[in-house]
Write a protein that binds this DNA or RNA. Sequence first.
DNA 1: GCTTTGACTCTCG
DNA 2: TCGAGAGCCAAAG
Length: 93
Amino acid sequence: MKRIPKGRVTTYKIIAERLGCRAYRAVGNACRRNPNPPVIPCHRVVGSDGGIGGFGGETSGSKIRKKIRLLEEEGVEVKNNKIVNFDRVLCRL
DNA sequence: GCTTTGACTCTCG
DNA sequence: TCGAGAGCCAAAG
C-alpha cells in the first residue's frame, strides 16, 4: 500500500492479488484497523468500482471528505465518494 | 478453537 | 441494471 505513487490509487482486489491471495476483506480490515495511520494511505485504496466504500456510516462524513480532499490534491478526481478518472489514476502495481 | 463480522469481489437470477 | 448468495482471508469475541 505504501508503494502506491502519489496521485494514484489502487483497489483491495489488486492488493490482495499482489499478496497472492483473495483476502480482499482482510486488506480492508487491515486498513480499517489501520496499524500505522501515518504511513498507511488508506484513502488511496478504493473498491473495484472505484468507490471509497461504505465507512462506518461516515461515507459522506468528515473523515472521508478529508481523504477525498487529499486525493483531489494529489490529482485524483473524486465525485460522490467515487473515483471519477478511475482508469487514469488506477495503479495496477 | 469455533463463530461472527467486515472499508470486498464475483456470479447468477 | 439491480438484488441476493457464495467465496475468500484475517481479526475479535
